[in-house]
Design a protein around this nucleic acid. Structure first.
Length: 754
RNA sequence: GGGCGUUUAGUUCAGUGGUAGAACGUUGCAUUCACAUUGCAAAGAUCGCUGGUUCGAUCCCAGCAACGCCCACCA
């Protein structure tokens, strides 16, 4: 494409055309790349060509582009474009994540507008609706990413619920099951009563709330008959959730607490329920908090559940999955938990067991999707044992098979793995990979003549296909649960590739991601890769910074501090936007300053005009200049500077010092090249009017290069071309557009030899 | 509570054991020269506070403060 130098640079017109040019070239696909960029195929020995593979962090299908994506993807694009120009076979694998809860939530909200609930629709119809939604909106974010100019191989785009991908997910489940690493257990989980699903700790949001702390007397057993007698012996506990006391199965105190030591082993009477429960000693109890004695409700508190496990306590569920009291709650059955709280507090007051209540600031856990208050309840879940897998992931980083940069994030990673708990992988939602687990229908229908075998029917089978019962006519029904979204995204580096591709493009090189998913995602990809491919999925993890609003707050929709990068692209172009992002991305936290976008735009203008000048003045020679001979001190200086900057830029990109690299190029191009060198050539050969194109231009150029001053059009052209190459990974559109005007080009700048 | 990080010009950030740099902004000057989305120049910083090491610290060490992030927990 020819850029029109008679007009100022207009990103709006140029960018779309250039992107199409890249798409048409097919060069985003490593299999279509010339044997080595910029060099004739014959000169290259195929065996020496190395791969450079980057797996894109999967955007959610529900996502819309934000500054974080823009930063993350610009960095990956710089790496990819640089390595492509260096002659690597570069694959950048894009895809989208089905994002179980998030997507189900969005579609449900959509349906609610039409007054339809998912329960009315039923599972099958609802899932169909989600697919429809996905087909309509699921690629929106990828299309937005294209606007920032990224060169991912779109022909390989995958979705985590594609047929082949899903098969891999289920196979992995079966594999773990067969290894004995998956187990089913009753566990008190964080339950969202609205979404009807369990949530991992990482899916919770906390909100400061004012509540009360109630101090309740539990009478010691031997004073049972004297409950109303103020002189009788009590143990006082403090709680924020009196309604859960109906399910208490112990009182816990710190074994070192002198006040209570003598009571360990004794029992108390649980008020209202009149059940006898033990007093146990447990180190998890902080003697300084409240009274130092805690009621233990394994069913409705995660810490209590763990205490319960240690002391073999019963789990009594008094709140159900809709946050209502169960039948075990007796006269409170059917009430919402909050209503029951009020009644119970009143009843305790009447019984004289409420010692006091005080105001208390606490943090309430809420569902990160819908904001509903979490209710811990016991529930049947699948867990993946983390002992072996966690150790593998830890070892990979400790042995430096995977390097995390900046280095201090290795601590974040290792620290998490030191204390990692088994991973709860089942979710009670409808959108996702349904567990390949089958339960035998309740009644056996014996096969003819085999009546006596029916007792052998397997209750549960883990299988990729619907199993048949060997002993009876009974059917198997698939589990209703689906897998945690991260279970499938953990497989991205290999499940995202076809079998053939997996041979060629696994393992990859670099993963660029944000710090908040180091544990959720990165660690899990590493152990999955090791378990299934016997190799780490990538050797470098680069943690990009976080873009904050200018006041230092997080950029987020809920705070209203979010900024849409597409606005900048629309106004000033993708190159200016990319420039602004990378220009500022030197540290971990980036306080976003819009002014940088304008600076980027000005820089585009400078590049455009300098290029116009150089190309026109030099007569746009057709033959490539490889080693121009310096004649003057200025010539020598600029060539020396160029060589130094180019070397440094390569180093900086490889060290993930993108901001530094861009500052260097900027400084070189604007100040060394434009302000000093170009001005110098003008002094020697003042040019009032642009020379004509064609032979006349070439003649004039010859005059310049052979002039008495000795300044060389060749050097101008050479430095420009080298600068465009250096700039290309950062600002791909404008550099490609200008390159299109050079008569000696061999194709596209994106595959020019660096 | 554990861990990590940040604190340098109006703003956003670089940086070095020998009293500091850029970009943007500000001010002045230039001008029809590829570019006014320009060029040249100037002003602008006791480098968070306190103490220590050192001939010398913004840079090393300790303490403090403010801000931020991550993890855990909050009965």
């Amino acid at each position: 494409m020819n850029a029109d130098f008679s007009k100022p640079y207009d990103p709006k017109i140029t960018e779309e055309k250039i992107y199409q040019l890249w798409l048409d070239s097919g060069y985003f696909n490593p299999d279509n790349l010339p044997a080595q960029a910029g060099l004739p195929v014959a000169k290259i020995k195929n065996s020496k060509i190395k791969n450079y593979v980057v797996y894109m962090p999967l955007p959610n299908v529900t996502g819309t582009l934000h500054m974080g994506h823009a930063l993350n993807n610009t960095i990956q694009d710089i790496l990819i474009r640089y390595h492509r120009m260096k002659g690597y076979k570069t694959l950048w694998l894009p895809g989208t994540d089905h994002a179980g809860i998030a997507t189900q939530y969005v579609v449900e909200k959509d349906l609610r507008k039409q007054n339809i609930s998912r329960f009315e629709l039923g599972r099958e119809k609802f899932v169909e609706k989600v697919w429809e939604w996905k087909k309509k909106y699921g690629d929106a974010i990828l299309n937005q990413l294209k606007k920032i100019g990224i060169s991912a191989d779109w022909s390989r785009t995958r979705f985590t619920m594609d047929e082949a991908y899903s098969q891999d997910v289920l196979k992995v489940f079966v594999h773990y099951y067969e290894k004995g690493w998956l187990y089913r257990g009753l566990r008190t989980v964080n339950w969202c009563p609205k979404d009807g699903t369990s949530l991992s700790e990482l899916e919770l949001e906390y909100e400061d709330t004012e509540t009360k702390l109630w101090y309740i007397n539990y009478p010691l057993t031997d004073s049972k008959s004297e409950i109303r007698n103020p002189k009788s012996e009590f143990i006082t506990v403090a709680t924020t959730r009196p309604e859960t006391m109906l399910g208490d199965t112990a009182i816990a105190v710190n074994p070192a607490d002198k006040r209570y030591k003598h009571l360990i082993g004794k029992t108390v009477v649980l008020p209202i329920q009149n059940r006898e429960i033990p007093i146990v000693g447990d180190i998890a109890i902080d003697p300084k908090f409240g009274t130092g004695a805690v009621k233990v409700t394994p069913a409705h508190d995660i810490l209590d559940f763990e205490i319960g496990q240690r002391h073999k306590l019963e789990t009594i569920q008094v709140i159900d999955e809709r946050a209502k009291m169960t039948v075990i709650a007796g006269k409170y059955a059917g009430l919402k938990a909050v209503e029951a709280r009020e009644k119970i507090v009143n009843d305790l007051k009447e019984m004289g067991l409420l010692v006091k209540e005080e105001k208390y600031q606490t943090r309430v856990a809420k569902c990160y999707r819908c904001g509903t208050i979490i209710e811990p309840i016991p529930s049947n879940q699948w867990f993946l044992k983390m002992d072996k897998l966690g150790a593998m992931a830890k070892q990979a980083v400790k042995s430096k098979k995977v390097r995390i940069q900046p280095k201090n994030f290795e601590k974040t990673y290792l620290n998490w793995l030191e204390n990692v708990r088994d991973w709860s992988v089942s979710r009670q939602i409808w959108w996702g990979h349904r567990l390949p687990v089958w339960f035998h229908e309740p009644k056996c229908v014996p096969k003819k003549g085999r009546e006596k075998d029916s007792a052998k029917c397997e209750e549960m089978v883990v299988s990729l296909t619907e199993p048949e019962c060997k002993y009876c006519e009974g059917k198997y029904i698939q589990s209703e649960d689906v897998l945690d979204t991260w279970f499938s995204s953990a497989l991205w580096p290999f499940a995202g590739l076809s079998k053939e591709d997996a041979e060629k493009y696994y393992p990859g090189n670099v993963l660029v991601t944000a710090r908040d998913i180091i544990n959720l995602w990165v660690a899990r990809m590493i152990f999955s890769g090791l378990e299934f491919k016997k190799k780490v999925p990538f050797t470098d993890v680069f943690i990009n910074g976080t873009i904050l609003a200018k006041d230092g707050r997080r950029m987020s929709k809920s705070l209203g501090t979010g900024i849409d990068p597409l606005n900048y692209i629309g106004l000033h172009g993708a190159d200016a936007t990319r420039f602004a992002i990378i220009w500022q991305a030197s540290g971990q936290d980036i306080r976003w300053d819009e002014a940088a976008v304008m600076a980027g735009r000005k820089f585009c203008n400078k590049i455009w005009n300098a290029s116009r000048f150089v190309i026109e003045q030099s007569g746009n020679p057709k033959s490539e200049i490889r080693n121009p001979k310096p004649r003057t001190a200025a010539d020598k200086k600029i060539l020396k500077k160029l060589a130094a900057v180019k070397k440094q830029t390569g180093k900086n990109i490889e060290k993930f010092e993108f901001s530094k690299a861009l500052h260097d190029i900027y400084d070189f191009f604007w100040h060394e090249f434009c302000d000093i060198y170009i001005e110098e050539t003008k002094k020697i050969h003042p040019v009032r009017n642009s020379p004509p194109q064609g032979p006349e231009g070439a003649r004039r150029a010859g005059e310049i290069s052979n002039g008495a001053g000795g300044n060389s059009a060749e050097i101008l052209m050479y430095v420009l071309k080298e600068s465009l190459k250096m700039l290309h990974p950062f600002m791909p559109f404008i550099t490609e557009a200008i390159y299109g005007n050079m008569a000696e080009k061999n194709g596209l700048l994106m595959v020019e030899k660096w």
